[in-house]
Design a protein around this nucleic acid. Structure first.
Lengths: 149, 149
DNA sequence: TTAAACTTGACTAAAATAGTCGGAATTACT
DNA sequence: AGTAATTCCGACTATTTTAGTCAAGTTTAA
């Protein structure tokens, strides 16, 4: 899972949308103003998010966007994956130049990248928009996991 | 913590070095050949890793690199931080254009990025070179953490 | 003396990122 | 019917970052 500014903006905008209440149609211009993100850029992001099925739109005057599902049912990884290309963690693919599939044996770090990927994914899929809006995402979540290890 | 191909190569090369045994001086050309990484590029990486104090070098014929500490005492985040700029997770800094420090209140997602950062950091600092060499890094580590949640 | 190896800084090509632009389609309201 | 608000779309582009090269050293073992 790639973590870029684009994904950050998408999460910020979706959080804003979720914070506006459940059923209302919110025009992008409102979100753009509140989050200080250019409208054009937001349009591009929301286009992708809509195609992923996370939001629904209504065109025309008084139109806007609303969440397709409840905020508690939308996890952050869904948002990130909607706007960024999915994978990018390890180069151990047949196409990669320096991957380990070229050589006969697996490279020593092969499993590592997979584990890292899973680790990040587990976190992002465990946090929902509702969590973020409610301020339930704090470093304590992480500390809990570390302590439990 | 940024996760790029550069950091990956650094970890791969350091793993290779650790796998060669404790005290021996290993020339970079050996690692370059085994890991299929260009020698020039490796030189650049090892320069940064040496400055970070993770390895020591001996110049001249029969020279090379060896780990400064035991493989069990070198964690992956030390390697990543040595070759990549440290931070890059959230834009909530004074310099950032769209950060939350500009507005009076904190942005809703502020804590989130910090938590994500901690989460990734916790993983990378919990894994040592010795773990990777011994093949102790598998997705099961992640599953353990999830199950414990 | 020679060859192996590290050291350094500057440079660069390619890729990815972040974001723009112009226009078209749709809808509510008057 | 007309107008303003709004989503929708694809293509385009400037900037930044990444990945990697290059040329010219310095140091040491044999």
């Amino acid at each position: 899972m790639k973590l870029t500014a684009k994904g950050r903006y998408a999460v910020m905008a979706m959080t804003d949308l979720a914070a506006q209440g459940a059923g209302a149609l919110i025009p992008l211009s409102d979100i753009a103003a509140r989050q200080k993100i250019s409208l054009s850029f937001l349009e591009q992001l929301f286009r992708q998010i809509r195609r992923a099925g996370l939001i629904e739109s209504q065109r025309g005057a008084k139109g806007g966007y609303r969440l397709e599902q409840a905020a508690a049912d939308i996890s952050l990884d869904q948002i990130i994956l909607a706007v960024d290309e999915p994978i990018k963690t390890h180069g151990c693919t047949p196409e990669a130049r320096h991957g380990c599939t070229g050589s006969s044996e697996r490279c020593l770090t092969h499993d590592l990248w997979g584990a890292l990927e899973s680790h990040i994914g587990a976190f992002m899929s465990s946090v929902t928009l509702a969590d973020v809006v409610a301020g339930r995402v704090t470093p304590s979540i992480v500390l809990d996991m570390e302590a439990a290890e």
